[in-house]
């Protein structure tokens, strides 16, 4: 726990240091090219305003979901559902903002051990990576409804297809491995 905290503080310090370096760099650039001062500062300010109008709300949503939806709940629902219902549950739980991707991998591995299907896990992971509700909101803000909705629908369809494909490949590989293992055992028996 302390290690994680130390790492986070380190990252925060690094990010602020990088920001300071970039500010200095830009200040020098603007001194060298004074005619660029207007376009650079107005663009940066416009984008900053657009971001800061939604950022606190997005963070509140992420905070709420991460506290209210426990890991146990995810495991409980994802571990046993399958089929079409499984796809929807996997996308839904993946889409809820409950933490960064590196939290999802151990969770996925635990779910596979509990008997969740490979396709659901792949769909769950991909949804976790790219169909997060707060992400969609920021996408809506900056790229518009048409872009966001089209990309979302295409992603869901293709990710579901990928889930089933990977499941086939993994199962096919396992079968082959089991067969060759059995063969070896038989040989040893003889």
């Amino acid at each position: 726990m302390r290690g994680k905290k130390g790492k986070q503080t380190g990252k925060l310090v690094r990010d602020w240091a990088m920001l300071a370096a970039i500010v200095i760099f830009v200040a020098i650039l603007i001194v060298v090219f004074p005619e660029k001062k207007g376009p650079v500062t107005t663009t940066a300010w416009d984008f900053f305003l657009e971001m800061i109008m939604i950022l606190p709300a997005v963070m509140v949503l992420m905070g709420l979901f991460s506290v209210f939806i426990s890991r146990e709940l995810v495991v409980k629902y994802l571990g046993k559902t399958s089929g079409t219902k499984g796809i929807f549950v996997a996308i839904l739980f993946g889409a809820l903002p409950t933490g960064p991707l590196y939290v999802a991998f151990p969770l996925a591995s635990a779910l596979i051990k509990k008997g969740a299907s490979i396709s659901n896990i792949v769909i769950f992971l991909s949804a976790w990576a790219c169909i997060k509700i707060p992400q969609e909101m920021v996408e809506l803000q900056f790229l518009g409804f048409g872009f966001m909705a089209t990309r979302l629908i295409l992603t869901i369809i293709l990710v579901a297809a990928m889930g089933f494909f990977i499941e086939r490949v993994v199962e096919w590989g396992d079968k082959k491995m089991n067969k060759s293992k059995k063969g070896e055992e038989n040989n040893a028996g003889i």
Partner: peptide, 30 residues
């Protein structure tokens, strides 16, 4: 608890947001 988590993550992402915003300014300006 959620609000504390939210405030912490806001603080954590703020420098990254500022960096990106400045880079966008440079990108469009230069």
């Amino acid at each position: 608890k959620s609000l504390i988590v939210a405030a912490k993550s806001l603080l954590r992402i703020l420098p990254v947001v500022l960096i990106i915003v400045i880079l966008i300014g440079l990108l469009l300006g230069f």
